[in-house]
């Protein structure tokens, strides 16, 4: 060990931990993985994920990526299921408020870094924004081939026949591709990638997106990326083209018709209402005077 290298610590006020929790050596390791991930779009870069003070499966990969890129002038937004006020989103936002002291926002347009679980915001993202996804299982082929040694070879050979067979079997059995979320995509014409468990509704937003998209899987120790303006194609067949979900009614609160909706059970007599999953989008629309049937 080189005793000349000092442990660099800038404690965040009041926490006793380094800025954004991670030590600088860990940040550098993650940053190097991010740069390689950007250079090889869609390829899963192994990284030495640390044990974080929140459980594996609860966003440790996204948290490590966010901690590695975050600077003092960033404005952070954290969403879970599209909402800023779900408990885990609140918990992660508080973690960064406490350890990094960065400004936070619920407004998509104001954020420079957005950490998300399961959704891509409805408002178009812009250059200068970074979307950080929490990823549970980064390997798109995992449920077809459980062995890492095998899937690594399949990616090396760009051998994605298994995935097409699986999707085709869906069509044969159900008449549809029965994958509704974590729908596999091909990135920049080479790697097949898991977009994380976002609904396939969000897949088109990944294509040619002006923002940088980073994916962190802590338990599985993988980081991958989609640079801005990159071709992201949802796998499909000529006779069964990719389609997103559609809802047969608009948001009951803001009237938006081109968004992903949460279904809310109102009573035990079959009463239902559908509202925007993206809470910021819904609030922004309502502030702009849009209304739905229940507003």
């Amino acid at each position: 060990m080189n005793s000349q290298v000092q442990i660099q610590v800038t404690p965040s006020p009041g926490t006793g931990y380094n800025f954004a929790y991670l030590d600088e050596g860990t940040k550098r390791m993650i940053r190097r993985a991010i740069l390689k991930a950007i250079a090889i779009p869609g390829y899963q870069v192994p990284f030495a994920a640390r044990e974080m003070p929140m459980p594996y499966g609860w966003g440790t990969g996204g948290v490590q990526v966010t901690a590695a890129i975050l600077g003092a002038s960033d404005v952070l937004k954290v969403i879970d299921q599209g909402a800023d006020d779900t408990t885990n989103a609140v918990s992660i936002r508080r973690f960064f408020t406490a350890t990094a002291g960065v400004a936070t926002t619920t407004r998509t347009a104001e954020a420079t870094v957005i950490q998300t679980r399961h959704r891509i915001p409805e408002a178009p993202l812009a250059e200068g924004q970074v979307l950080v996804y929490q990823v549970p299982i980064p390997e798109p082929l995992r449920f077809l081939e459980p062995r890492e040694t095998e899937t690594r070879q399949l990616h090396a050979l760009a051998e994605y026949g298994l995935m097409h067979v699986k999707l085709y079997e869906d069509i044969a059995r159900h008449g549809h591709i029965a994958t509704t979320y974590a729908y596999p995509v091909e990135v920049a014409g080479r790697y097949v990638m898991d977009p994380s468990p976002t609904p396939k509704f969000d897949n088109p937003k990944m294509d040619d997106c002006p923002a940088l998209q980073l994916f962190g899987a802590g338990r599985e120790k993988r980081i991958y990326a989609i640079p801005p303006y990159t071709r992201v194609r949802s796998l499909d067949f000529e006779d069964h083209p990719f389609r997103v979900q559609s809802f047969d009614r608009p948001c009951a609160l803001c009237g938006a018709g081109d968004v992903y909706l949460d279904e809310v059970v109102l009573d035990d007599a079959g009463g239902r209402m559908f509202v925007c999953s993206d809470t910021d989008h819904c609030e922004t629309r309502r502030a702009d005077g849009h209304t739905g049937e229940a507003a």
């Binding site: 044990e51 459980p55 594996y56 499966g57 609860w58 440790t60 879970d80 299921q81 599209g82 779900t86 885990n88 679980r117 399961h118 959704r119 549970p136 549809h176 029965a178 509704t180 979320y181 974590a182 468990p197 976002t198 609904p199 396939k200 509704f201 338990r219 979900q245 809802f247 992903y260 909706l261 949460d262 279904e263 999953s277």
Partner: peptide, 25 residues
């Protein structure tokens, strides 16, 4: 045990976006 418990217990987190996608299908 930490990896296992984290991933098993993360099923407690909201999944209504994915569940909605499955409901629709």
């Amino acid at each position: 045990s930490l990896q296992a418990t984290g991933f098993v217990e993360h099923m407690k987190l909201p999944h209504y976006v994915d569940f909605q996608a499955e409901l629709e299908l």
